[in-house]
Amino acid sequence: MGTQGLDFAEFYYRSRDNCFRAVLVSVGDQDAAQELVAEAFARACASWRTVSKHPAPAAWVVRTALNINVSRWRRRRREVLVAEPGAIADPAAAGGTADSVFDPRIKAALMRLPARQRQVIALRLLLDLDTRRTADALGITPNTVMAHMAQALAALRHDLMPERQQESPS
């Protein structure tokens, strides 16, 4: 049965924080993430009869938010040269007011990951989606999801380990 028939309001209150955190990890900027997720939820509300039948409506919202981000980047690119939507040149400068709600060390480590690996981390860890649903949401194969996940975790582990442990042989 899944979430069929679930009321939108209940869905919004239950899912909004997790969706916001997933998009925040993906885009790195709190204000941008709020706006993207709000627009995605509005689109979900406007199409609730369809979205409520989706096996993972929260994944639908996050995927929609990420697509909106890409669409806007493509529109801006036609006018001025901007960085790719998933690229963040200076992790310390990204996020603005997000620093107070996001552990800066872990945030910086996440922002150093390629965009796709961040998206896999966001959906697998923050939305608790399994490999198959993550693959469906991102339009990639489950094997690719597992590969991205393994690479992301390895990179994070390396980044977050204390320096003395990195120097010592394991």
Partner: peptide, 9 residues
């Protein structure tokens, strides 16, 4: 690390 982030809209 991100537990303090909330959607306020």
């Amino acid at each position: 690390s991100i537990r303090g982030a909330h959607m306020n809209i």
